[in-house]
Write a protein that binds this DNA or RNA. Structure first.
Ligand SMILES: Nc1nc2c(ncn2[C@H]2C[C@H](O)[C@@H](COP(=O)(O)OP(=O)(O)OP(=O)(O)O)O2)c(=O)[nH]1
Ligand SMILES: [Mg+2]
Ligand SMILES: [Mg+2]
Ligand SMILES: [Zn+2]
Length: 571
DNA sequence: GCCGTTTTCGGCCCGACTGTTTTCAGTCG
């Protein structure tokens, strides 16, 4: 599958078109095509082979020709011509805040600057001052932006972003002018990582809010400071954008600031078809300018003939079409979750006892919890003899508490696809999660075969964290997720949405494909301490972004139904 | 470059902030 390469080619083409100063709509066309292919689940080669490239929205004759040529010779004539004019390493300069395609082109045309270091040197040597439109302030800003660029950090995982946002919201809440606050952007959409924090406030008098926001104690640098919008860089190098509107526009502003950008553009295009125009202040009739909505988000969507769309779905992946037809899914909620399917205790690498985990589950209002400690060969795995004792303890605790505690295991899948635990023990267990923890550097076919073999084992109920990725730390191991999904459909084995915020595995996109295939999913927190049971909200968020309804999630089922599913696998 | 319940040509989301501009281009959300 060469989709990622094609996406990179199209993005480079788009960037270089902009730098070259060609029609910006052409650049947008290339960018839209890149997005469409990034969202594609099928290998692009297959689309080319079966002559279906044109069926992809945003791919016409020229881009189809580019893609075909790229797959044959690894580059395109279009790209070669652009590269001859502007070297591709110029694209790095675009990462510097405030430096866009026009500036990059001028820096190259006039000074042959191609790297950040050269730009810095030229600025310090006073060479930029000769350029048109380059005043002292602009040069100072570029130098400062280069420093920020050098410290630039990766995208922030959602659980960290949530707590940072809470602190800022609390500070803004103190301001007397603030009537309402809403953390928006990718955070409100529950994306797994966020690039910045986007916070919306309602206020009658917005200027003092902006003034006080830019003077918050943790602010390292003020990037912009206007009457309705400001941006700051916090001490931890996280950017925070604040937008303020009057209460009459709060709904429209919430819609705008929640995004995504692609959703906004699609929504605004839909409005135009109805003679309406949408901005962050409201929905207006194009002809008269009359305002028809804006105070609430529901009102904005309603004015366009849509039902309100949950933020998690706002990615322009079919949600507008579904909302038009009134066919949005009834997304699963935290309240729908009836129990925990993946947890650890001191018997392996957890911090709590079986009883503590069970009591914590009861406190959450669950109907059941499965204790699923590790198997060998991990050093902390429970050895077969100890596992018999662990099972006894689980039964005793369950009896004592009068609360269903399932005896489970997270068994390691060996390189050959066999399970690292005695079969007689697996038979005694109520719930078996099988997952990969070792020998992750296998080639794609071998890894896929390994997991498929485990799925064919009738003792296995769930495949845990199916791709093994750790957010910002480790890429997924190479595996054909579509093959796992197909096998899950065939066998009835559930795939896990691991809700541990460093994993979130399956991710939203894979979980959506699984759901569309009718595959059952299990949301487990992989709790290693009692507090980790609260990670369930992150797992639910992934499921919601995957369009999952309660019926798609096995642990929305009541205890008896869960037991029926578990034993049905064994027959 | 793409696309079509108004179009095969003429649009393409829409607005805030900044710096250097004397009326707005560039960049970003
Ligand atoms: N209409 C419109 N809205 C935009 C545009 N760019 C950004 N927005 C809106 C939608 C975004 O969700 C919101 C915040 O912008 P961000 O750049 O912070 O993006 P977002 O938070 O979605 O993703 P992030 O995790 O920050 O990369 O502003 C745009 O070009 N047009
Ligand atoms: Mg954002
Ligand atoms: Mg932002
Ligand atoms: Zn685990």
């Amino acid at each position: 599958m060469r989709n990622a390469e094609v996406v990179a080619m199209l993005e480079e083409t788009a960037d270089l078109i902009e730098i070259a100063g060609e029609n910006p709509f052409k650049a947008r066309a290339y960018r839209r095509a890149a997005e469409a292919i990034a969202a594609l689940q099928e290998p692009i080669e297959e689309l080319v082979r079966t002559k279906r490239l044109h069926t992809v929205e945003g791919i016409g004759e020229s881009i189809a020709r580019d893609i075909t040529e790229f797959l044959q010779r690894g580059t395109t004539t279009r790209l070669e011509q652009l590269r001859a004019k502007y070297p591709p390493q110029l694209r790095t300069l675009l990462e510097i805040q405030g430096v866009g395609p026009r500036t990059v082109a001028m820096l190259y045309d006039r000074l042959k600057i191609t790297t950040v270091d050269e730009l810095e040197a030229a600025a310090k040597a006073g060479k930029l001052a000769k350029l048109p439109g380059m005043g002292e302030q602009k040069i100072r800003n570029i130098l400062e932006s280069i420093q920020v660029w050098r410290r630039q950090q990766e995208r922030v995982p959602i659980h960290i972003a949530l707590s940072l946002a809470e602190r800022i919201v609390a500070a803004l809440q103190e301001l007397p002018e603030v009537i309402a606050i809403l953390p928006a952007g990718s955070l409100r959409r529950w994306k797994e990582t966020v690039g910045d924090l986007d916070i919306l406030v309602a206020a009658r008098n917005t200027q003092p809010v902006m003034d006080k926001f830019t003077k918050l104690p943790e602010v390292q640098k003020v990037l912009a400071h206007g009457t309705t919008k400001s941006s700051v860089l916090m001490a931890n190098n996280l950017q925070v954008d604040l937008r303020a509107v009057e209460p009459e526009s709060f709904g429209a502003a919430a819609q705008y600031f929640t995004g995504s950008k692609a959703h906004n553009i699609a929504l605004r295009n839909l409005a135009l078809k109805h003679g309406l125009t949408v901005n962050e202040y409201g929905v207006f009739r194009e002809a008269t300018g009359e305002k028809v909505a804006g105070e609430t988000e529901e009102g904005v969507y309603e004015a366009l003939g849509l039902v309100w769309i949950p933020p998690e779905l706002r990615e322009d992946r079919g949600e507008l079409e579904a909302a038009l037809k009134g066919a949005l899914p009834r997304l699963v909620t935290l309240d729908d979750i009836r129990g925990e399917t993946h947890s650890h205790t001191r018997w392996s690498d957890g911090a709590a006892t079986v009883e503590e985990m069970a009591r914590a589950a009861m406190e959450r209002g669950y109907e059941y919890i499965a204790i699923t400690d590790h198997s060998p060969p991990m050093g902390w795995g429970v050895k077969p003899d100890d596992f018999r004792k662990l099972i006894r303890e689980i039964r005793q605790v369950s009896d004592r508490l009068g609360f269903p505690v399932l005896a489970g295991i997270e068994v390691d899948i060996a390189s050959d696809g066999s399970l690292h635990m005695d079969e007689d023990i697996l038979r005694q267990l109520d719930l078996v999660i099988a997952s990969v923890h070792s020998a992750m550097k296998m080639d794609m076919d071998a890894m896929t075969r390994r997991i498929l073999k485990a799925m064919e084992n009738p003792l296995v109920h769930i495949i845990g964290h199916p791709t093994g990725r750790l957010i910002n730390q480790r890429p997924p191991y190479e595996v054909r997720v579509d093959a796992l999904i197909e096998k899950a459909r065939e066998t009835g084995v559930a795939l896990e949405i691991n809700g541990s915020p460093e994993r979130l595995d399956l991710n939203d996109e894979h979980a959506r494909i699984a759901r569309d295939a009718g595959v059952l999913l299990s949301i487990g927190t992989d709790a290693h301490r009692t507090e980790h049971l609260a990670f369930m909200r992150f797992g639910v968020a992934v499921a919601r972004r995957a369009w999952c309804e309660p019926k798609d999630i096995v642990n929305t089922r009541p205890y008896t139904e869960l037991r029926e599913w578990l034993s049905a696998r064994r027959r």
